[in-house]
Nucleic acid binder design. Structure first.
Length: 570
RNA sequence: GCCUGUGUAGCUCAGUUGGUAAGAGCACCACAUUGGUAAUGUGGGGGUCCUGAGUUCAAUCCUCAGCACAGGCUCCA
């Protein structure tokens, strides 16, 4: 139970309308406005864990008496105030606690109890002395036995686990959640809201994106690291994330030390930087990390792959000198450009987000950083909007937004400038002149989150991914049972030529149109039908990615074509 | 988290104003069929009607509490 004790000159309140469906009826007297002078107002929120009414009431009364005697209050106002807790008990329990507490307190005080379950207008004047505002948390300890003998019935609990049911009423046909189901890419369940279960087909896409990412980043002078999933709370106090995002972290513990499930990769990266003295020769040091992060998000904001609790960031941190900054920013912009061209994606708009209210670092540094980013944008002649006050708490950023099937925009790539983290973590390098200097840092992602990126990509292609990304690249259909042996030979030939080709077959005894339909729903780029004609002519009848036209092609030529597409990532 | 909806078979949905009403199509399995580029025929198996508590002689349906999903708000290091 949570309570807030306010010592007031007066309080005035009046019930307006029901907040709950089932509440105590009010007498005419109770419906009237109440005015109480010189009172200790006890705002109460009864919580789920307050099952032992007797003990809860006992402790509540004890607390109230304690404070009342200190402030010398003779009148108590018990005032239900649900907003103190997010773990509220059911109304019945709450009512009982309040009624019992009222009875107890009446033995020593004048008690006024405000009605439960109503929206009330109220006005009060707090005295303002040191003891006039106090909050208390009342906990009833369960006996050790109860804890160790936690009772549950596994088969019973299984009933509570269900697959997340998608409400498709407001969705477009190319919504990634529908495609994900059709193409067997991923799923969600009740027991892991906002966390993706990647099926084989979906993971293929994710892994291919990662392969491409790794290749491009190696080419662009990045190293890659991987840091732990949970780290001591201290680290996040150093970085400032604890201060700013306390409630948005998953907490766990190890030998009585508090650990945070990482919501960001940067602090881990900082520690790697600090493992040995660094030289100016190492800068710019570009360090990538495909980090899995967890963030506690409000349940109402979750949305398919677009907004999740657990996701993979294609993160990177670039440590460099101030002189190198501009070039590094351009370098990242080029990389972003390269990626979006590859996927034929266009940005809806680009934002420059400036200093937020809650931030670290001096105003001079913020000024400098913002000007720097703006200059870079202007030099590149990039159109952008200013998003005032929306920067990260450690620095301003440039965000790249893309539209989804419902015309909502989502941030994918971002470039963030940061003078503060290196300061907080005491990062240094030895410069030419043998003096210790502080590096500057850039945080950046290209895909943003792999989850969100895949969602966008699916919607933009309507699931018809380029061959290199398609979970199934080629499917061979038999015309009749007569043709199965030959069709198997074709499949084998493809596999011999391309061991990594994702090819499968459909030899069911059904019509060709039926099998084509299924392959189309799976968005297979190349559907090959093998029948008597093909056996005779030794050619292939290929249906290409959604077009209704059938191409008759030479086997060898077709294999070359696919090889080329996969190699060139088309 | 808030507001408004939604939750019935693997998928898409119908239905019961509380009582032999647990239904269809697709998918799956079997049999027949051997077909030419988005759905071959017949038969069969398959359901905790989101979960829990309550009301009732009786709950998928009513009440209360909760969970998840969706749209919007707010938020997004």
């Amino acid at each position: 139970m949570k309570i807030l004790l306010l010592h007031v000159d007066h309080i005035k309140f009046k019930p307006l309308k029901k907040a709950l469906k089932k509440v105590e009826p009010l007498s005419d007297e109770e419906k009237k406005e109440k005015y109480v002078k010189e009172a200790l107002v006890v705002l109460t929120a009864v919580e789920k864990s307050d099952k032992d009414i007797k003990k809860v009431v006992e402790k509540l009364v004890e607390n109230v008496k304690d404070v009342a005697s200190q402030v010398k209050a003779k009148t108590i106002v018990l005032y239900p105030y649900a907003h103190l807790s997010s773990e509220l008990s059911d109304p019945e329990l709450a009512m009982n606690v309040l009624i019992e507490a009222e009875k107890e307190l009446k033995k020593s005080f004048v008690v006024v109890r405000a009605p439960f379950g109503y929206y009330k207008e109220f006005e009060l004047k707090v005295k303002g002395h040191p003891l006039s505002e106090l909050s208390r948390e009342i906990k009833v300890e369960g006996t050790g036995k109860e804890k160790s003998e936690e009772k549950y019935d596994a088969t019973h609990l299984l009933n509570e686990i269900s697959k997340a049911k998608l409400d498709t009423s407001k969705l477009k046909l190319n919504d990634h959640r529908i495609l994900g189901q059709q193409m067997d890419l991923f799923s969600f369940t009740d027991v892991a809201p906002g966390m993706v279960f990647w099926h084989n087909n979906g993971l293929i896409i994710k892994n291919e994106l990662i392969n491409f990412w790794r290749e491009m980043h190696r080419e662009h002078g990045y190293q890659e690291i991987s840091t732990p999933q949970i780290m001591d709370k201290k680290l996040w106090q150093v970085s400032g994330h604890w201060e700013k995002y306390k409630d948005n972290n998953f907490l766990t513990e190890y030998e009585k030390r508090a650990f945070l499930v990482k919501p960001m990769n940067c602090p881990g990266g900082m520690l790697v930087y600090k493992t040995r003295p660094r030289s100016y020769r190492e800068l710019p040091m570009r360090v990538g990390e495909l980090g899995v992060v967890h963030r506690v998000e409000l349940s109402g904001v979750l949305a398919g792959l677009f907004r999740v609790i657990q996701f993979t960031q294609d993160d990177a941190h670039i440590f460099c000198s101030e002189e190198q900054l501009e070039d590094e920013i351009f370098e990242i912009m080029e990389l972003i450009d390269l990626f979006y061209k590859k996927f034929n994606l266009e940005f809806d708009h680009i934002e420059l987000s400036t200093r937020p209210e809650k931030r670290i670092g001096s105003d001079e540094i913020w000024e400098k950083s913002e000007i720097l980013l703006e200059k870079a944008l202007k030099k590149r002649r990039i159109k952008y909007k200013i998003n005032k006050g929306e920067g990260a708490f450690y620095g301003p950023k440039i965000d790249f937004h893309v539209k989804d099937s419902l015309e909502r925009t989502w941030q994918l790539s971002t470039i963030q400038l940061d003078f503060s983290m290196p300061e907080r973590f005491g990062l240094e390098y030895m410069d030419k002149d043998n003096k210790r200097k502080r590096p500057v840092m850039l945080h950046r992602v290209i895909y943003g989150s792999l989850e969100r990126f895949i969602g966008i990509l699916l919607e933009h292609t309507n699931g018809r991914l380029p061959t290199w990304l398609a979970p199934i690249q080629v499917r061979v259909l038999s015309f009749t049972d007569r043709n199965v042996d030959y069709a198997k030979k074709i499949v084998k030939k493809f596999k011999d030529e391309m061991p990594n080709l994702r090819i499968d077959s459909d030899f069911r005894q059904t019509t060709v149109p039926a099998k084509v339909k299924d392959a189309e729903i799976m968005r297979v780029p190349y559907i090959i039908v093998v029948g008597d004609k093909e056996e005779k002519s030794k050619k292939l009848a290929v249906r290409v990615r959604g077009s209704q036209k059938i191409e008759i092609v030479d086997v060898e030529k077709f294999i070359e074509r696919i090889k080329e597409e996969i190699k060139e990532r088309k």
